[in-house]
Design a protein around this nucleic acid. Structure first.
Lengths: 134, 134, 134, 134
DNA sequence: TTTT
DNA sequence: TTTT
């Protein structure tokens, strides 16, 4: 059993890649979720990273943007990759099997992030067909 | 909203630390959760890291051991720390607010891991009172 | 373990009662949640009944209204009562421990439902202190 | 969004029916889940009813029995039927899309419940193809 | 008895 | 660095 449900806002526009073989869309983004905290403590926020595959990834690209509110149903997925120094980095993501758009309206102009700054974790920059979870 | 429910087996005995001020117990361990995968694909497993605070942490120390099956109800918590090279490492854990023991029996002899090998992520090696989430 | 997470719209304004002794607020309402269904099948909707206690119940009264979108985190609670014919009726509700308002704006004018039509299930019409789940 | 995760024990052996057209297996059973309650209050238990379809229903029939511990991932489904007095009865069930067996061993001898006492709610006694949720 |  |  591995179930996660989140409601939060995108910290940036989603990034979309395509797997080399099946050309399946893979969208990734990060949610900001405020932690319910006693009034004495300072506000804290969690930033889980979300991965979406296939048709839903394409819809995320079309309809989501920085700041938009979404509900996610998915599961925790762990992995690892070697960074350019050759050291192993461990990752923990939420792979969504259901993304619910809780706010609509005109899609915002894309973030004017420049090319080198994708917001995508290094280990995911080359999405691959064996990442597809079904 | 930030809800996670997991059922899996401990990859090692839990590790327990105490916060310096309140002397609250903090247990950490990793679960192995097999991914339900088509029979054609090879078996895959996720390894989310769990953190438990307080009385429940003490019970984890007493009753859990490597291989034991547990149910976790919690939420995803993200954080970061600087490693000894000064580079920021991002972490994603599940902070449990409910641990359900699904197997009992004699607690196993502890893993004969030697002192330097705690299995605890570097960023957590000094647990601190401001980690307490309530 | 008993965890439920829902996102849906209120079918009516919430109803609020107070327990006789502690005078704790108890809000009840029903959510409409569309079932994701193949395009060939007709649209289907589930209508789980939600119960909220205490401060959150008061906030539901203030901020929620028919049609409003909410997220619920809670657990399934079953019970039973005898109706006026003396036959036992079994109930299944979701007791919320967290209600997240996903839409704001002016609270709508109340439904012009007349007095005898509370929308509250018979077994709940007399809320009682021993219903308080904490 | 409509997500429920439960861990509990069967109150009876599962009952299995087949839909008239597709001859798909439909298993139903009730879980007992103890409510975590302060030590002052008396112990309380919830009894949600579970419905499982298809191959998983067949596995439930083969491997589950009264008292066995299971994990359920599913969603809340509401419905209604008319009883023999012609009065409408509303139902709330959990439709499982994943049943995890948390205990194994020899399947127990079936409950010696007599024929007229199926433990299945009246409204479900004639399972029908349009109940299949996919 | 049902919501957008 | 991984469990049955």
């Amino acid at each position: 059993m591995n179930v996660t449900v989140l409601i939060g806002r995108l910290t940036r526009d989603p990034e979309v890649r395509y797997t080399p073989n099946s050309q399946m869309a893979v969208a990734t983004f990060t949610l900001a979720i405020d932690r319910p905290t006693g009034k004495d403590k300072e506000k804290q926020t969690d930033f889980p990273r979300i991965t979406v595959f296939g048709k839903q990834a394409e819809n995320c690209e079309r309809f989501l943007a920085k700041g938009r509110l979404v509900g996610i149903q998915g599961r925790i997925q762990t992995g690892s990759y070697k960074n350019k120094e050759g050291v192993t980095v461990y990752t923990t993501d939420v792979v969504a099997n259901n993304v619910q758009f809780l706010e609509w309206g005109e899609k915002r102009e894309a973030d004017n992030g420049f090319a080198g700054d994708t917001g995508i974790p290094e280990g995911f920059s080359s999405v691959d067909d064996d990442m597809i979870p079904f």
